[in-house]
């Protein structure tokens, strides 16, 4: 009885605090004035690198934030893995695959396989053209992950269109992250700054001509290493979401 009383008391207190907090939050939202600040300078100089400003900010001006964000996804994937038994202390616990395997109906077969291919093609376009049109590594990767989702739902994990194993998904993720990390290290090695955009070389920092040509994406824009970083991110996002989805699907239902 006393327990319920204290519970109600706590809820009341929480409600009062929430009310006061909401008042101040909404009040400040009405008074919020914006000044452009750094964004203005990014817009002023960004077109020197590539046409899509958001991609330029993500992969050049603030590429290091994007690295951190990639690692959040990796951390989440590892954590979900640990949750379902991979790498817990005292040896791995393997899970039975309990996904119900239903043979797909004819309609599903006819419609889903081409749809999967179209979605994958869209993902590739979004990834590779990320620095010119809206899109980029995240978008492309998650579009392809959606296609994977669809094919797993229709055909089951064993017989899905991609026919890729857990182990290879993991490797793919590692490769995506290592592409990003190592391109950053190249910048550190030749110019002394981590994640320097070696291919574009907008602050001439003693980068050799050959290296610059090598790392420059063959394209009329001056994007440098941005498309390669996009590809790395796409691989990582794709395999990250696929791994999480398969892990959650593989959980036992009680």
């Amino acid at each position: 009885m006393e327990d319920r009383g204290s519970q109600q008391m706590r809820n009341l207190l929480a409600a009062v605090f929430l009310g006061i907090f909401s008042y101040f939050l909404i009040h400040s939202m009405f008074n919020f004035d914006i000044i452009p600040g750094t964004s203005y300078i990014y817009n002023l100089k960004g077109p020197l690198i590539a046409p899509n400003m958001v991609t330029v900010v993500l992969f050049d001006w603030r590429a290091y934030d994007t690295l951190g964000e990639a690692f959040i996804l990796i951390t989440a994937v590892f954590t979900t893995g640990i949750l379902f038994g991979r790498g817990v202390l005292g040896g791995d616990v393997s899970q039975k695959d309990t996904t119900p395997v239903r043979p797909p109906t004819v309609v599903q077969k006819i419609f889903s396989a081409p749809l999967v291919f179209i979605i994958v093609a869209l993902g590739l376009v979004l990834t590779l053209g990320g620095h010119i049109t809206p899109g980029g590594g995240f978008q492309g990767g998650s579009v392809i992950a959606t296609a994977f989702f669809l094919s797993v739902v229709v055909f089951g994990f064993k017989h899905n269109v991609f026919s890729i194993s857990h182990h290879n998904l993991e490797r793919l993720e590692g490769i995506g992250a290592l592409i990003y990390l190592c391109l950053g290290l190249v910048g550190l090695a030749v110019s002394g700054y981590y994640l320097y955009n070696v291919g574009a070389n907008i602050y001439p920092l003693g980068v050799g001509e050959t290296l610059q040509e090598l790392l420059k994406y063959p394209d009329s824009t001056n994007a440098g290493i941005i498309p390669y970083l996009n590809i790395g991110i796409a691989l990582k996002v794709l395999s990250g979401f696929c791994t999480i989805a398969t892990l959650l699907m593989g959980a036992e239902k009680k």
């Binding site: 899509n52 958001v54 809206p134 995240f138 978008q139 998650s142 999480i244 989805a245 959650l248």
Partner: peptide
């Protein structure tokens, strides 16, 4: 535009998919 694409994919396909699972 870029964010809208991401949100359209994640917010209306992937995240509801994960919650549905």
């Amino acid at each position: 535009a870029d964010v809208a694409i991401t949100q359209a994919i994640l917010g209306s396909a992937l995240i509801p998919g994960l919650i549905a699972i």
